[in-house]
Amino acid sequence: MHGPASPGWLLVALCAATGAYCVLRMRSGVEEQRRAAGGDALMGFGMAAMAVPAAVFTPPSWTWPLYAAVFGAAALRAVWAVRRSPHHLHHLVGTLAMVYMAVVMAVSPGSGHHAHGGGAGVPLVTGVLLLYFTGYVLLTGVRLVPDAVADGAAGLGWGDRPELARACRLSMGIGMVAMLLTL
Rank of each mutant, 00 (worst) to 15 (best):
M1S: 09
M1L: 10
M1W: 05
A5H: 02
P7I: 07
P7H: 09
W9D: 12
L11F: 04
L11P: 00
A13Y: 05
A13V: 10
A16R: 04
G19E: 03
Y21R: 12
C22S: 15
R25A: 09
M26G: 14
M26D: 11
S28M: 04
G29A: 09
E32K: 13
A36V: 00
A37L: 02
A37S: 10
A37T: 01
G38Q: 03
G38K: 03
G39T: 07
G39H: 13
G39M: 14
D40S: 15
D40Q: 14
A41G: 01
L42D: 05
L42N: 02
M43G: 00
M43A: 07
G44P: 01
F45R: 01
F45N: 02
G46H: 06
G46A: 10
A49T: 13
A49Q: 09
M50Q: 12
A51F: 08
V52C: 03
A54S: 09
F57W: 15
P60M: 05
S61E: 14
S61Q: 15
S61H: 13
W62A: 11
W62N: 08
T63I: 04
W64I: 09
W64Y: 14
Y67V: 15
A68D: 02
F71V: 05
G72Q: 09
A73S: 14
A73M: 14
A74I: 05
A75L: 01
A75E: 06
L76V: 13
L76T: 11
R77E: 15
A78L: 00
A81H: 04
V82F: 01
R84C: 04
P86A: 06
P86G: 01
P86Y: 06
H87G: 13
H87I: 11
H88F: 15
L89G: 12
L92P: 00
G94R: 02
T95C: 12
A97K: 01
Y100V: 01
V103H: 08
V103S: 01
V104P: 01
V107E: 15
H113M: 11
H114V: 12
H114M: 12
H114D: 15
H114C: 14
H114W: 11
H116R: 09
G118M: 10
G118D: 15
G119F: 02
G121S: 03
V122G: 01
P123R: 02
L124F: 15
V125F: 04
T126L: 00
T126R: 09
L129G: 00
L130P: 05
T134R: 01
G135Q: 03
Y136V: 13
V137R: 07
L138N: 08
V142S: 10
R143Q: 13
R143P: 07
V145T: 07
A148K: 14
V149N: 08
A150E: 13
D151L: 11
G152N: 13
G155P: 13
G155Y: 04
W158S: 13
G159E: 14
R161I: 06
L164C: 05
R166S: 11
A167D: 06
C168K: 08
C168E: 14
C168M: 12
R169Q: 14
L170Y: 02
G173T: 09
I174N: 05
I174G: 09
M176L: 03
A178D: 10
M179C: 04
L181D: 06
L181S: 07
T182A: 13
T182V: 10
